[in-house]
Amino acid sequence: MVERLEKRYRITMSWNYEKEEQWINELSEQGLHLKKAGALKSFFTCDPTTRFTYRLDYQPGLKKNRTMQDYLDLYQDAGWEYVVSYGGTWHYFRKEFMPGEPPRLYTDRESLIAQYKKIQRVMGGVFIANIVIFSANMTNLLSRFSDRLWGIIVPVMAIYFILFVLLGFGYVKTGNKIKKLVK
């Protein structure tokens, strides 16, 4: 029997991944359980008889099979079923739903702050890397296509501009989340 997968659309932003978590948990309450995660399109299995608590975890750099396996083993030991990863950095786990206080991956303020800081650091790193790439690209494009301003130069600049705004926005938003916790 082929499992039928339901599609749902949503734009996910790393700086408020808790919103995505909430969205997935609400769908699970309605009987739609996340199977495959995407930045825009996610797939769900349909089973109204069960409900899960989903949690997202950001862990970059688990590329080596062994490290990834150790990571998953530990979460599994803590009762989390591994569902799927997105982009090799966001990992989705779930646990059968239980009434009462919902289980969390980060159980104290300090570790949650450290987690937000990690996300923020990566955003900052990508931002700086892109400024370097952008400068290199621009120097190159300007020398070769200086006559095609609207055809090439402006569109490329616009794409980078959107990227910078998103990264900058995410960096500030994550910073606000950290400030809230530190207080």
């Binding site: 949690r55 975890d57 862990q59 990571y71 530990l74 979460y75 030991d77 803590a78 989390w80 786990f93 289980p103 969390r104 991956l105 980060y106 159980t107 104290d108 570790s111 450290a114 987690q115």
Partner: peptide, 21 residues
């Protein structure tokens, strides 16, 4: 995780993310 729960008489439960980090 189990030892922590036992030693703290069930008060401190370390979540998987907290423990891993």
């Amino acid at each position: 995780m189990q030892d922590t729960e036992k030693l703290s008489h069930g008060r401190v439960k370390i979540g998987a993310g907290t423990l891993y980090t």
